[in-house]
Structures are given as structure tokens and as C-alpha cells.
Amino acid sequence: MGIPEVDPTAGSPLLRHGARVTGNKPGRWLARRVAPRVDRQLLRLSKGKLSTAMVTPELLLVSTGAKTGQRRTTPLTYFTDGGRAIVIASNYGSSRHPSWYYNVLAHPRVTISAGGYTGEFLAQEISGSERNRLWGLATTFIPSYAQYERLAGKRTIPVVAFTETP
């Protein structure tokens, strides 16, 4: 079965609308502070079918805290590429990387749930021309990523690929 496929080139008017909502300061604040708290429960209860985003495919990433060693659950937008789940560590254009990014660098074996499917995955930060290719897909898929890149200043926004483990 595997993680549900999400084509980043399919495009959607709803995605463009969602990008406009998170393209302003209040929208980013809601998406960063409120939505993740609601989405953890909403995604669990709906078996990965409903989230506050409604227009973007969401997964639940369960990682081990880099400092605490505690399990952390984070809802994230994703798309797929060659069977891998691709996630952008945008942190809504903050000058700092998101916490989950440090967690998967320290402990790359994670659990991901999406669309009713749950599996074990291995995280890998993507670099070079492959990162550039995936970043291009990401900005086509979620146009606000390009704005987040400008807001992030000198920080290069990481692209992380999750490959299912046997």
C-alpha cells in the first residue's frame, strides 16, 4: 500500500488560495501556533483524511527529540517523489529551522502516518542539484515556499526526504 502519492505538479486553485492565507503575518501565526495543535488530533481521529489545512496533504511525523529523547508528533505538509515523502523545513520563513528538523537529523528513523497508512521511514536531508530540483517542485506545489525563502534571509530552507524502510 504505502504512503499516499501526492503529485506536486498537479496544481489546485485551493492550494493557491491556501498559499495566500499563509502569505501574511496573521495567517502564518495561525498556521504555526494553532493549526499544529489541532491537526495532531484531527489527523489521528480522521485516519489522516482531515486537517485544518484542508487543501494540502498532511502527514503525521513521529520523531525522537534530539535533546529530550521523547517522542514528538508533528503534522507536516508533504508531496511524494519516487516513492519518498518530501517535506520542506520552512518553519514559515523563520530565521530558525523547525524543531522537527533537528530531531530527524539526530534520529533519522521515524514513523509517518498519512491517509490511513502508517510506516517506518528513514529521513535524509537532500542537497545539491537534487535539492534544487525538489525545491522547484515544492515552490510549484506550495507557492508560499518562495516567500518563506525570502523571509528566512540567510537560512537555506532544508528539503528532507523520507524513504520507507522494509
Rank of each mutant, 00 (worst) to 15 (best):
L15Q: 12
R20E: 09
G27I: 08
R28P: 01
R32P: 02
R33I: 07
R33P: 01
V34Y: 05
P36G: 09
P36I: 05
R37C: 09
V38P: 02
L42C: 10
R44G: 11
L50C: 10
L50E: 07
A53D: 06
V55A: 12
P57D: 11
L61R: 01
S63W: 01
Q70D: 09
R71C: 03
T73A: 08
T73R: 06
G82I: 09
G82M: 08
G83K: 08
G83D: 09
A85H: 02
A85M: 04
I88T: 07
S90G: 13
S94M: 10
P98T: 10
W100K: 04
Y101P: 00
Y102F: 10
Y102V: 04
L105R: 07
L105K: 04
L105W: 00
L105G: 00
L105Y: 00
R109F: 01
S113Y: 03
A114H: 04
G115R: 03
G116K: 06
Y117A: 13
T118W: 07
F121L: 08
S127T: 13
G128A: 15
S129G: 12
N132V: 13
R133W: 11
W135P: 00
W135C: 00
G136V: 09
T139M: 09
T140K: 14
F141I: 06
I142E: 05
Y145H: 14
A146F: 06
Y148E: 05
E149Y: 04
P158K: 06
